[in-house]
Design a protein around this nucleic acid. Structure first.
Length: 1047
RNA sequence: GUGGUCGUAGCUCAAUGGUAGAGCAGCAGCCUGAUAAUCUGCGGACGCGGGUUCGAUUCCCGUCGGCCACCCCA
C-alpha cells in the first residue's frame, strides 16, 4: 500500500475537511453505537446560557470534557453526553429588557408578562446555533439532537417534583429575612449569587449626631456608610464592655468610643481630634443602655406599640471603625433585623420593592432610588440643615452588586422561600468528602469552607421568566400551603384536565386556583425560582424523572465526571450537591475537574470593557483547534490560570505537531509499497527500545487520564513523540530507512508504523482531528472507533537504562568534540566511557555500534575505572551529614576533601569509610558524599556525575583523510540538493584541485560514491557540463566539485 | 478589612532545612538525503527587613506587591 502525503494546507482546512467526513459517516453516532450497553461512564454537561456568545474559556472546559469522554469511550465505556441549555433566569430577562428598552418591573408588567416571557423563550436560542457550531468546530462531541432544556414542560415538572419532595421533608419553607436585594431587578439574591458581584467602591460615609432625649447637649456620634438607612433608624447599639468617652466641644458633649477618638472634632480643615481634646469623662458602654435619643430625619412615622429611639447593647459592636456606636435599621440589615426581634424594636421600611423611598412625609425624597448618589446627597444636605451632620468621610470598601445588572444591592427584609440546606450541612460536607476534586484544594478549601458556612438557599425570585414556584397559598390563612409536584396533581386540585397547550410559566400558571378546605382561595405564590436550582436539577430533570426514564436516571446518577470553571464553585457545583443531598442523600458527581480562567497575555481578566477578549473563531482559524486544544491542555495544569498568548500557543503545541507531522512524512516517504502485517525479521535492540518506551508511555497516559490528570497525559505523549520517537529513534535509524540501493528495513518500518498508530490512538482524545487524519492514513479507519492502546509487551528496564546511558554519553562526547574543536565529520580513533554500576553492562555494550556512529569514532571502550580519565573529588552532602553531625557538620564536610580515590570509589559503590576529623574517627556513609570528576587526562573528557566520555584527540593521517572524504560527501550532498535532484537520482562527480583532498577521496572512493549515489567518480578532472559546480574549501584546501546526472 | 496564595534566569515554571534546576526566547557553533527538528556552549546570590538554625530560597515574624476567596461588617 502507499501512504498518503500530509496535506499542505492549513490545520484549519484539514480540520474542516475531517468535520465533513465525520458528518457524512455519522461518526459520533457510530462511536455511541459501538459501546452501547457497555459499562456506563456518566458525564453531565453543565448547561450554558445560550443567550451569550461562547468565548475561549468555553473552549477550555469543553476540551477537557471532551478529552475525558473520548478517553473513556476508547476504553470501551458507554459514555452519555447529553447537551443542555440553561434557559431561565435574570440574565435572559435583562437581555430582553434591554432590547425592549424597559426599565424595571413596572415596565415589564405594562408590556405584558406573557409577551415578555415569549421573547425570553425566543432569545435563549439566539446564540444556540453559534454554540453548537463552535462545539462542533473544536471537536466537542455532544448529543445536540436530544438536549435537555430547562424551560420545557417536562423539565419544569421534574423540578416541581423535587420541590414537592423537599417540602414533604420539611426542607422548603417561607421566611422573613433580610436578604441581599437588587432594587433594579426587584428581587432577592441568594448567597451564592451575592458572591459573584463584590466590587470595590468608594461611598460617602457620614458621622451623625443623635442628641440624648433628656439632655440634648449630650450627643451620640454615630457612623453610617449608607445614609439612606437613617430614614429607618430605630435604635443605636453600643458594646456594653467597650470604653466610651464624652468630649466637650463648645457647648456640646460628644459621646463616642475612646478607641475612636482620633476623629476630628469638626469638619473644619484644621480641626483637632477628640483625642487631642481629651475626654471629660470615660465610662463603659453599658451606662448608655436604655437612654433615649432624638432620631435624625424624623420623616417616617414610628409605630407607638414598639420600642424605638433608644440605645441597646450588642456584642458585635467594635471600635475597629466608625465611632463605636452603631445605627440600627431592622429592615435593612441582617444584624439589625436580629436586634429588632430581640429587643422588640419597631420595623419601618420606607423603601418600596423597586428600591425607591416611599411612605415619608418628605416630598423631595419620595420616589428616589436609595442607591442613587443624589439620594444620599439630599439626606446629607438635610442632616446639615438640621444641625445633625458632623463629618463626611469617603469610605472605600467592597460592596455587593447585582451580578447581572451591576447595580449596588441593598439589604432588605421581605418574605422569601428557602431551601433548608443548613439542615443537611453536615451531610453535604460528608458527601463532599467522597468527591474526587481535581485539584483537591478546591474541594477541601474553597468549596469545603463555603459549605461550612452554609446558609439556607434563598430560592424565590420576584421575577417572571423562571420555573414558577409550585406553591399555592390560601388567601385567608397563609399557613395553608400546598406544593404541587406534578401536572397531574395540579389538574386534580384544579378539578379539570389541563389544557392541550398547557404552559407552566407565568402569567398562565397564576390563573390556576381552587378552594382551600377552609373555604379560602388557594392561589399560587407569585415568585419564580432561582435558575441555579434548574441547572442543579439536571441529573433527574434531563430524564423527566420520575415521570419517565426511571431506569436511565438510576443508571446515570451520580455522574462519574463533570468539569467546569472555578467560577462554578458556588454555582453549579453547589446547586448539584445541595439538590442531590436534600433530595437523594447522594453526591451528584464522583469526580470534578475545576479549570481556571483564561486570562489575556498580560494576565488580565478578559472582559468586553478592556477589549482584550480572545475570539475563539479567530484563534481556531489561525492555529486549528487541535493546536489550541493541546495548548490549553499542556501548557500548565488546567487548574492554573492560562495566559492566552498566541506566541505561547505555537511554542507549546506548534512544535509538537510539526514534529509529529514530520515523523509521519518520514515514514510515508520511505515506506513505499511496504504493507503492514507482512513478514519481518527479528527486531534490533533499538526497535525493542522504542517498543519499551511506547509501552511505558501508554501506561503513563492511561493512568494519568483515568485519574483525571489531563495535563500529565498530554505531556507524556508529546515527550514520547518529540524525544524518543523523532529525535532519537528516527534520527539514529535513518540509514535503515534509506540506504543506497537498498530497500527500507521492514523491521524499522514496522516499529515506526506501530508507534505512530499507537500515538494517533493516544492522541485521539486530546487532538481528535490530527489523530484521526493520521490513523486514517496509517490504518484506513477512523481513530475514534479504535480502542485506546494497551501496553502489549513488558517494559525492558535494562534496555531503557542502557539506552539512557548511551544518549548521555553521546551528548558528553559531542560536548567534548565542541571543546576540542573536532567536527563530528572528523573521525576519531577511540572513545572511552565510564557508566555507573546500575547500567547493565552487556546490554550497554551492544549499543556501542550506535555510539560509534553517533560520535564518529572507531572504537568505544568501557573502562573499568575512570581514574585515568578524571580525578575523583568529594562533594559533601550537607543534608545527610547535618542530620548526624549537627554543629560539627561544617568540619566534617570540609574534611571530606581528604578522602582518597579508593575511599571515594568505595563510597560510590555503597560502602562506608572512616576518616579522622579533629582527632575523632568519623564514618562517612555512601550518601554523605557525592563523587565528582575533574578532568586530568590529555584526552578530551566530559563528565556528568558517574558518566564519563573521553575522546582520544590525536588524529592520524588516515583519520584526517577519512575526515576529508566525509567532508567532500557533505559538500556533494549539498550540491545534490542545490541541483534539485530526487533522493534516488544517480550522479556523476568530477573533482579537481588540492592534491591532498583528491588523494583522500581516492582512498575512500567507494564510501564517497555510495553515500552520494555516484555512479561515476572522476578524480583530478573537471566535469565537462556539470549541473552544479562549486569551489569548496576542505580543511583549508580548495577543490572544485562538479556534479551531473548519471545517464 | 479578614483568610488564603504567590513573588526564583528576558518569559513560563521546578525543586529542596544544605548551598538553585528545566523549557522557551536570544547569541555562537555542530549535525542533517524528514524537519523553522536535534545536539553543544553561554546567564540568576530565589521581593524586602528581621528571627530560629552549624546552615534558610525552603521554617517563623513583619513589610511591600500580585492574585483569589470571604464579609451584615454599622
Amino acid at each position: 500500500m502507499t501512504f498518503p502525503s500530509w496535506p499542505d494546507g492549513s490545520a484549519h482546512a484539514l480540520e474542516e475537511e475531517l468535520l465533513q467526513t465525520w458528518q457524512r459517516e455519522r461518526l459520533f453516532e457510530q462511536t455511541r453505537e459501538a459501546t452501547r450497553g457497555a459499562e456506563p461512564f456518566v458525564f453531565y454537561e453543565g448547561p450554558p446560557t445560550a443567550n451569550g456568545r461562547p468565548g475561549i474559556h468555553h473552549v477550555f472546559s469543553r476540551t477537557i470534557k471532551d478529552l475525558i469522554c473520548r478517553f473513556q469511550t476508547m476504553q470501551g465505556r458507554d459514555v452519555t453526553r447529553i447537551a443542555g441549555w440553561d434557559t431561565h433566569g435574570l440574565p435572559v430577562e435583562i437581555e430582553v429588557e434591554k432590547r425592549l428598552d424597559l426599565r424595571g418591573k413596572r415596565d415589564i408588567e405594562r408590556y405584558g408578562v406573557a409577551e415578555f416571557n415569549a421573547l425570553c423563550r425566543e432569545s435563549v436560542f439566539k446564540y444556540q446555533s453559534e454554540w453548537e457550531h463552535l462545539s462542533d468546530r473544536i471537536g466537542y462531541w455532544l448529543d445536540y439532537q436530544h438536549p435537555y432544556v430547562t424551560c420545557t414542560n417536562e423539565y419544569v415538572e421534574s423540578v416541581w417534583w423535587v420541590l414537592a419532595r423537599l417540602h414533604q421533608r420539611n426542607l422548603l419553607y417561607r421566611g422573613h429575612k433580610v436578604l441581599p436585594y437588587c432594587p433594579r431587578c426587584g428581587t432577592v439574591l441568594s448567597s451564592h449569587e451575592l458572591a459573584l458581584g463584590y466590587e470595590d467602591v468608594t461611598t460617602n460615609s457620614i458621622y451623625v449626631t443623635f442628641p440624648l432625649a433628656d439632655d440634648p447637649s449630650r450627643q451620640l456620634l454615630v457612623w453610617t456608610t449608607t445614609p439612606w438607612t437613617l430614614l429607618a433608624n430605630v435604635a443605636v447599639a453600643v458594646n456594653p464592655d467597650l470604653e466610651y468617652g464624652e468630649y466637650q466641644v463648645d457647648g456640646t458633649r460628644y459621646i463616642l468610643a475612646t478607641a475612636r477618638a482620633d476623629l476630628p472634632v469638626s469638619s473644619a480643615k484644621d480641626a483637632g481630634t477628640f483625642a487631642d481634646l481629651g475626654p471629660v469623662r470615660t465610662f463603659p458602654g453599658r451606662e448608655l443602655i436604655g437612654l433615649g435619643y432624638r432620631r435624625p430625619l424624623d420623616v417616617v412615622p414610628l409605630p407607638e406599640d414598639q420600642r424605638s429611639r433608644e440605645v441597646i447593647a450588642a456584642e458585635f459592636v467594635s471600635a475597629e471603625n466608625g465611632s463605636g456606636l452603631v445605627h440600627i435599621a431592622p429592615a435593612f440589615g441582617a444584624d439589625d433585623h436580629a436586634m429588632g426581634r430581640e429587643h422588640d424594636l419597631a420595623l419601618v421600611r420606607p423603601v418600596a420593592a423597586d428600591g425607591t423611598v416611599t411612605g415619608t412625609d418628605w416630598p423631595a425624597i419620595e420616589g428616589q432610588l436609595v442607591t442613587d448618589k443624589s439620594t444620599n446627597d439630599a439626606i446629607i444636605q438635610r442632616l446639615k440643615e438640621d444641625g445633625r451632620w458632623h463629618l463626611t468621610e469617603p469610605h472605600r470598601h467592597s460592596y455587593p452588586h447585582c451580578w447581572r445588572c451591576r447595580n449596588p444591592l441593598i439589604y432588605y427584609a421581605r418574605d422569601s422561600w428557602f431551601v433548608r440546606t443548613s439542615a443537611v450541612k453536615d451531610r453535604m460536607l460528608d458527601l463532599n468528602q467522597t468527591v474526587g476534586w481535581h485539584p483537591p484544594e478546591v474541594g477541601s478549601g474553597r468549596f469545603g469552607e463555603w459549605l461550612e458556612n452554609n446558609v439556607d438557599w434563598a430560592l424565590s425570585r420576584d421575577r417572571y421568566w423562571g420555573t414558577p414556584l409550585p406553591v399555592w397559598v390560601c388567601q385567608d390563612d397563609p399557613d395553608h400551603v400546598t406544593v404541587i409536584g406534578s401536572y397531574q396533581d395540579l389538574a386534580e386540585r384544579w378539578g379539570r384536565p389541563l389544557p392541550e397547550a398547557f404552559d407552566p410559566h407565568k402569567p398562565f400558571i397564576d390563573e390556576y386556583q381552587w378552594d382551600c378546605q377552609c373555604g379560602g382561595t388557594m392561589r399560587r405564590t407569585p415568585e419564580v425560582i432561582d435558575a441555579w436550582f434548574d441547572s442543579g436539577s439536571m441529573p433527574f430533570a434531563q430524564w423527566h424523572y420520575p415521570f419517565e426514564h426511571a431506569e436511565e436516571f438510576e443508571q446515570h446518577f451520580p455522574a462519574d465526571f463533570i468539569c467546569e470553571g472555578v467560577d462554578q464553585t458556588r454555582g453549579w457545583f453547589y446547586s448539584l450537591l445541595a439538590i442531590a443531598t436534600t433530595a437523594f442523600d447522594s453526591p451528584a458527581y464522583r469526580n470534578v475537574i475545576v479549570n481556571e480562567m483564561v486570562l489575556d497575555a498580560a494576565g488580565q481578566k478578559m472582559s468586553k470593557s478592556r477589549g482584550n477578549v480572545v475570539d475563539p473563531w479567530e484563534v481556531i482559524e489561525r492555529f486549528g483547534s487541535d493546536t489550541v486544544r493541546i495548548y490549553l491542555l499542556a501548557s500548565s495544569q488546567v487548574w492554573f490560570p492560562k495566559r492566552f498568548d498566541e506566541r505561547a500557543v505555537l511554542e507549546v503545541a506548534g512544535g509538537f505537531f510539526d514534529t509529529l507531522k514530520n515523523s509521519y512524512r518520514f515514514f510515508a516517504l520511505y515506506a513505499g509499497e511496504w504493507t503492514p502485517g507482512g513478514e519481518i525479521g527479528d527486531p534490533l535492540l533499538v526497535d525493542r527500545w522504542l517498543d519499551s518506551r511506547l509501552n511505558a508511555t501508554i501506561a503513563h497516559v492511561t493512568e494519568a487520564w483515568a485519574g483525571y490528570d489531563v495535563t500529565a497525559g498530554v505531556r507524556a505523549i508529546m515527550e514520547f513523540v518529540v524525544d524518543d520517537l523523532s529525535n532519537w529513534y528516527v534520527r539514529i535509524n535513518r540509514n535503515r530507512f534509506w540506504a543506497p540501493d537498498a530497500e527500507a528495513d521492514p523491521v524499522a518500518l514496522d516499529t515506526l508504523y506501530r508507534a505512530l498508530v499507537a500515538v494517533s490512538r493516544m492522541l485521539a482524545p486530546a487532538a481528535p482531528f490530527v489523530a484521526d487524519w493520521l490513523h486514517r492514513a496509517l490504518v484506513g479507519t477512523s481513530v475514534h472507533l479504535a480502542r485506546f492502546p494497551v501496553p502489549d509487551t513488558e517494559r525492558d528496564q535494562a534496555l531503557e537504562l542502557a539506552m539512557d546511558a548511551a544518549r548521555r554519553l553521546v551528548s558528553l562526547a559531542r560536548a567534548g568534540r565542541e571543546d576540542a574543536n573536532l567536527k563530528v565529520r572528523q573521525p576519531v580513533a577511540r572513545l572511552q566511557v565510564a557508566v555507573p554500576r546500575e547500567v547493565p553492562r552487556e546490554t550497554f555494550r551492544t549499543l556501542f555500534p550506535l555510539i560509534q556512529r553517533e560520535i564518529n569514532v572507531k572504537v568505544v571502550e568501557l573502562v573499568a575505572s575512570d581514574t585515568d580519565l578524571v580525578r575523583l573529588q568529594a562533594k559533601p552532602n550537607f543534608r545527610s551529614l547535618g542530620k548526624r553531625f549537627g554543629k560539627r557538620t561544617p568540619a566534617v564536610a570540609q574534611a571530606a576533601a581528604r578522602l582518597v580515590p579508593e575511599q571515594l570509589r568505595a563510597l560510590e559503590e555503597g560502602g562506608s569509610v572512616i576518616l579522622e576529623v579533629d582527632g575523632e574517627p568519623i564514618e562517612y556513609l555512601s550518601e554523605d558524599v557525592t563523587v565528582e570528576r575533574v578532568v586530568t587526562s590529555d584526552w578530551v573528557v566530559q563528565s556528568d556525575g558517574p558518566y564519563v566520555a573521553a575522546l582520544d584527540p590525536e588524529l592520524t593521517d588516515d583519520l584526517r583523510r577519512e575526515g576529508m572524504a566525509r567532508e567532500v560527501v557533505h559538500r556533494v550532498q549539498r550540491l545534490r540538493k542545490e541541483a534539485g535532484y530526487d533522493y534516488t537520482t544517480r550522479i556523476a562527480i568530477a573533482l579537481d584541485g588540492a592534491e591532498e583532498v583528491l588523494a583522500a577521496v581516492a582512498g575512500h572512493s567507494e564510501f564517497v560514491a555510495g553515500e552520494t549515489l555516484a555512479r561515476r567518480l572522476d578524480i583530478g578532472e573537471r566535469a565537462p557540463a556539470p549541473d552544479v559546480e562549486a569551489d569548496v574549501a576542505i580543511y583549508g584546501a580548495t577543490i572544485t566539485i562538479g556534479i551531473g546526472r548519471f545517464e
